[in-house]
């Protein structure tokens, strides 16, 4: 048995310390607030959290491995969630505008992007861009090469 003094020495936190806290990604972006804390029913370990991103916006599930720390004011993540790329512009390696990210898919169970659905006035329909063509994601997305070398449709 553990007594209260030992809990305090461990600096243990409770669900009250997590629920309702703002969630901040590694880029300092405020993602929302912690709505739900998920606990494994057998081993009673924290599995992850669900983030409430606001009115009419879909929630976001984050596994505990992506959580860096819980502080008195916020929950910090180690990552920038892949879904953040929605709405970002996509540039080739020369900075040429390719389009805007309309949707994406991630590799199952990871934060790694599998495909981006990109739309632009130049394409007749949305085009899929494979995740391995992404060089860098910051405020917008940079691809690994020039548009003509990536063989994207006209």
């Amino acid at each position: 048995m553990i007594n209260l003094k030992q809990f305090n020495e461990l600096n243990a936190i409770t669900s009250d310390d997590v629920l309702g806290k703002e969630v901040i990604d590694m880029n300092g972006e405020f993602l929302g607030v912690v709505e739900t804390l998920f606990i494994h029913p057998q081993n009673i370990e924290v599995i992850g959290i669900q983030i409430d991103k606001g009115f009419l916006r879909r929630g976001l599930l984050i596994g505990k491995d992506h959580i860096e720390k819980v502080t008195p004011h916020a929950v910090f993540l180690k990552i920038k969630p892949a879904v953040s790329v929605k709405g970002m512009k996509v540039f080739d390696s020369d900075g040429k505008d390719i389009g805007t990210v309309m949707g994406l898919s991630v590799k199952q169970g990871t934060n790694e992007i599998d495909n981006l659905a990109v739309s632009s006035p130049f394409f007749k329909k949305k085009v899929n861009i494979a995740g391995d063509l992404i060089k860098f994601i910051g405020y917008n997305v940079f691809l690994t090469d020039k548009r003509e070398n990536l063989k994207l449709p006209d």
Partner: peptide, 11 residues
């Protein structure tokens, strides 16, 4: 008239 971008893609 062409874009000026930061390394993180900020226009």
């Amino acid at each position: 008239g062409s874009k000026v971008l930061s390394p993180e893609g900020l226009v």
